[in-house]
Simulated scan of single mutants.
Amino acid sequence: MRILAVDDDPVFLELLAGMLKAIGYGHVTTVGTAEQALHEVDTSNHVYDCILSDMQMPGLDGTALTTAIRLRTAYRQTPILMITALAGKNFVDEAFTAGATDYITKPLDMIELKARIGMVARLLSERHRLAEFARLVGQRAAQVEINADFDTPILIPGFDRGIEFLAMENYLLTLGVKRMYSTSAFGIHIKNASMIFNKASGAVYMQMLGDVAAQIVDSLKTEDAKIAYAGSGNFVCMSERDLGAATDDLEILINIGLMDFESIYATDRIPVPQVRVGEVARSSFLSPTKPTRILERAILSASTPPDKRSKPTMVA
């Protein structure tokens, strides 16, 4: 794995490189500024598999660097891990909104670093497969053969408002139970996703997911929501705002918007996707649990017909 590490503290960079080598990752390039990092990704003869960046640096900070890196096509899905002493929720929000995959606070722990980088290593094969999807953005290439996987969470090519589902989970884990009580989530389930997956080519299925994602953004009409595709026809929206009163209307708006594609789907010989929006899930002060449980409840609510849902939707 080729790793690019960015930090304005040369002592920390040396320490980080040594720790990475100790856990089996010796291909590490270190730079001292965000500007140097951008020059490196633009001029290097190889593409880096993972980027580790400090948050506070002179000139461009870590958030600006992450945003700039995500604009590079080759780095659209590359794992970016923020390593910083800043633990405030506003810094965490900025990092993940910019496109960070994970957030690690200093001082570094060897065991934690090994676990986080190990997670990145497991993701790389999936990222390489998704690079093929990126070449098909904007095309309905039914004749192109690509291997889509129904259950795997992915970052949909061309969906600029989307974040990786893994990043959404890491965001909640970074906040922790005590800091996530203002956060709510709800799921959006494509009811006929399995049927479309079985009928369509991989490229057409991916385009369908892109259509649904675009309709979610158009119908949601809020800038603060984080949206991820969790696999199996499920999207998850997470926000600081209480959107519970709008979920029924949101379902109607998305389905109406998708009907505009009816003639195109008929050409592809697949049905128009139909979505169901679940109830809003929140954490409860009385029943604290693992932070990512809120996502599980949101997905379960959306994938379950209303008459079969259990209540309440507080995370327990």
Rank of each mutant, 00 (worst) to 15 (best):
E262G: 01
G257Q: 06
P10Y: 12
L65F: 05
T105G: 03
E223R: 10
L300N: 10
I163D: 07
V28A: 02
L13F: 02
K178A: 15
I227P: 01
R76G: 02
D42P: 02
R293T: 14
S301Q: 05
I256S: 03
S184C: 09
S303V: 06
F133Q: 03
L60Y: 11
D268G: 00
I294P: 13
T97F: 09
V137Q: 15
S263C: 07
K290S: 11
N255F: 05
R179H: 12
A100G: 11
F91V: 08
Q77V: 09
E94S: 14
R309Y: 04
P306R: 00
A5S: 14
I227G: 00
Y48D: 03
I117W: 00
L60G: 08
A142W: 09
L81P: 05
E94C: 11
A37C: 05
T97Q: 13
S283N: 14
V137W: 07
N45D: 12
P271D: 00
A185F: 07
R241S: 13
T101A: 00
G118S: 01
T289C: 09
A203D: 05
E126R: 13
G32P: 07
G99R: 02
R276M: 14
I146Q: 01
P157Y: 06
E126A: 09
I188L: 04
V236P: 04
D8N: 15
S53H: 11
R72E: 07
I188T: 04
A22I: 01
I188R: 04
D54P: 00
E145R: 14
L243V: 06
K178L: 11
T313V: 08
L155V: 12
G210R: 06
A100P: 09
V204R: 04
F91S: 08
L4C: 05
H27R: 14
L4A: 08
T183D: 03
R2H: 13
T67N: 12
S284Q: 03
R276V: 03
T84V: 04
L13G: 02
T174H: 02
I117L: 00
I69Y: 12
L52K: 06
